[in-house]
């Protein structure tokens, strides 16, 4: 098969990066939320290119399905008078961008400097491998994560409950 992977990668990268930038720069929250969803889909596509289908599907399920909706709810609940949304901090905004870029550059340099022993092409781990790892080697973290989720649920309910005057 002809080598479509490189142009495909660039398309997928674009699908990820452009909405990300839009998300951050959009004035209206709804638009930035939509951009985020697009970005998550992009990420799912990246997983696909990395032969991690299971991950891609779970990514779509969780991020696009659950978390984005959650954020949409949050946006709805905290409807603000649209007028005064000031996009950035006046003070820190101009500092944040260069800082982020500097961060990116340094990380890139560090990564480029580092040497990884890499096998030539992407390998193809099946779902069975994942499940083996997940349920015997990492069983304990798995249980732990469930605990974390439990705590998060209880916490979220408590925090967001409408305060009843006692």
């Amino acid at each position: 098969m002809t080598d479509y992977s490189t142009p495909l990668f660039y398309i997928v990268a674009a699908v990820v990066l452009i909405p990300a930038v839009l998300m951050v720069t959009f004035r209206n929250l709804i638009y930035s939320a939509a951009a985020m969803i697009l970005c998550f889909i992009g990420v799912a596509m990246v997983f696909v290119t990395l032969n991690a289908e299971l991950l891609a599907i779970s990514q779509v399920l969780i991020y696009v399905g659950a978390i984005s909706i959650l954020i949409m709810f949050a946006i709805m609940l905290t409807r603000q008078r649209s007028g005064e949304i000031r996009l950035f901090f006046h003070r820190q905004a101009w500092l944040a961008l260069p800082a982020a870029l500097a961060l990116a550059v340094t990380m890139a340099v560090v990564l480029s400097r580092a040497s990884f022993s890499t096998t030539p092409g992407p390998r193809n781990p099946g779902t069975s491998d994942l499940s083996n790892l997940l349920f015997d080697q990492y069983a304990f973290p798995f249980e732990l994560v469930s605990l974390v989720l439990l705590v998060a649920i209880v916490g979220a309910i408590l925090l967001a409950r409408r305060e009843r005057r006692r």
Binding site: A20, V24, Q92, A93, L97, A104
Partner: peptide, 15 residues
């Protein structure tokens, strides 16, 4: 890295 930087920028810049 790029995505990470954008995220960082968003965290720092948005109100």
């Amino acid at each position: 890295v790029a995505l990470f930087a954008i995220g960082a920028w968003g965290v720092m810049a948005r109100r």
